[in-house]
Design a protein around this nucleic acid. Sequence first.
DNA 1: AAGCGCGGCAACCGCACCGCA
DNA 2: CTGCGGTGCGGTTGCCGCGCT
Length: 368
Amino acid sequence: MEAMGSIMVDDLLLEDEVPPAMSMSPGGGGSPSATSAAAPAAAAGGVSSDDESAAADLRRGPWTVEEDALLVHHIAAHGEGRWNALARAAGLRRTGKSCRLRWLNYLRPDVRRGNITPREQLLILDLHSRWGNRWSKIALHLPGRTDNEIKNYWRTRVQKHARQLRCDVNSVRFRDVVRRVWMPRLVERIQAEDEAAAGGGGAAHHLPSVKMAAASAPPACPRMPLRSGVHGAEDCYYTYSDPAAAAAAAGQTTPPALSPDDNASSAPHSSLTMDAASHYSCYTTSATATTPTNEGCGGGGDASRATTTDGDVLGGSWSELLATAGRDDDGDSSMSMVGLPDFAGWFGDLEDSSSLWSLEDLCLHQLC
DNA sequence: AAGCGCGGCAACCGCACCGCA
DNA sequence: CTGCGGTGCGGTTGCCGCGCT
């Protein structure tokens, strides 16, 4: 869809044989300077006159449908790898890097397009909390999503919310808001979707019915209070939908690799996969019953109220969300929610939360 | 209706790492 | 051991479309 405009523009460029560096830098990306076009070619090959002429002949900017077809057909016939050689063999006047990027981010058949789902958002938030800007690593756990897409999501959506809160996206305060407001809302949303898919209605028995595979089970975390100490009579928990899995996970003695330096990401399964994320459920506990927390967990009220059409559950104003998050169901404000950005006042002492904010970390903290 | 501003996203860049000769 | 080419990754850029004024 959005590619059509680019294709039209680039078709003109192709027809007119505009030298890449001379183009009007179509489709964005990089500096349109005359030197930048030759640099990748020089890096990819030698600096012979042939290579120089080839470099001068290299195209940049948006891909045309013809180029896409060439690349797809060539990869279908010969497979991936050796991108520089592939580009030449396919008759593409592109750098190998450009071909690789186009293939991985756009042409690959298993690339998922469209909005980031709440489940994916939850995973991104969680995984980013552990690994930081390791986009490719995070992307491994979101099938069909590319690191570029996740990176763009983070920069456009998440950082936007951080800006609204006037704090750094990597600050402890923003992380705490994410943990206490954003993630619970995502869980609400996921649960609502699961319930809708299951037919809706009812209460506790509408737990997601998916069985949790041991390999994909989240770490030892049967219940994770999100606001313990804030609401006296009501705490919000992440919990396993499958008691057996929760018990199994509780018995797990070896915590998953969580440090940024771990090598577990290269393994086929991580401690938290898309499957596993679907088993997080947010529930309140009360004296009478365990009930789904569409009314109580994290935000109170209608979860869809702050949901935008693009699936961003925090489409509404942060001040409103935060005010709601700090209010009991009966409307009493249990936390002072006046003014931005006095997070410490809202959420209490955050000094010890710097290392406790991921789902796993929260869970481990609660088990101590 | 037209202009403007902003967000989304595709594509590029520079750097680091890895394997091989 | 070293140099080089290939690959992968994170950061950045800038066009395009859409919503607002």
